[in-house]
Amino acid sequence: MITGKNITKTFRQRGSVLAGREVRALRGVDFAIEKGGAASFIGESGCGKTTLGRIIAGLETHDSGEITIDGTPMSPLKPRQREPYFRRIQLIHQDPYSALNPTRTIHQTLDAPLALRARQTRRPRSWVDERAEELLALVGLDPAYVLPRYPHQLSGGMRQRVVIARALTVDPDMLVADEAVSMIDVSLRLGILGLLKDLRERLGVSVLFITHDVATARYIGDDGELYVIYRGQVVERGHVETIISDPVHPYTQSLLSAIPVLHGLEQPGEQPVVPTEALDESHHDAGCLFARRCPFRTERCESELPVLGRAEGTPQEHACFHPERRSVVATPIGRG
């Protein structure tokens, strides 16, 4: 189990033009991911979701707040002491084409971490090859076909499976998948999503899924928790199906409204929400971060910052003074 309390992160830009400009990537984010659980962070690019994922994977530092892994707070530990904790959280990133060393066969790619693992756990050398085959079979690949090959001989989907197999060599507790299917061919995406779901069920690995495509978040498990992040703040949080079917925050609603409708198969939602203007990261108002783009803003929104909670008795948490259910998602046309 991993939890975060009030995580903040500010990037200071360097270089002549932008020197001194600050970008507040995370503005006090709380999260909790159960062992074997699933969570998804969604939002536009620059919202902080990738930064948060990297902090959770131990690849990025944060300015304040506390990360706790299996009950142990990380901040008092020295970097070396944190290592064993973060090793159990593996990041799978967007581009399987650059994640694998092109000069190594898949056998070589898996051999190195497994050999280390064998030494650590005092297993015989023969275990390494067995385990490599086992892991490839687990991710749905044929070891005999894949092992002797180089990355360029595999499709994007197969490469992403190899990347997942490599992440599994250290027996992780959690996989952080950052846009893990956005570069995969459309016809193969569900295969990767299904695999992540499958690994949760079979190995009890928890999965953190980071994406801008809300629909994919459903496919790693219907018990998943969804975090909608806007400009470094969680604006809506709850059960994935609840948020997709009954979103109450206007930002979530505009994200869902923006998803293309498959005309002929679906009809558009009845109350689509379109932001009144484009995202402008530079403005700093006292009030709600989304207020300036929100079609439903009131005076209160412009002066007071809403905090995440269950005000107005909604099943999910939200950060909005005027939460209201709107029908924004396209519905399938009944076949008849």
Binding site: S187, L188, R189, A215, T216, R218, Y219, I244, V329, A330
Partner: peptide, 21 residues
Amino acid sequence: LRAIPRLVGDIDEARALPGRP
């Protein structure tokens, strides 16, 4: 069409196309 993740409908109905392009 069946392989596209959708916001509504039964998750189990959607599946990847076998093979590769």
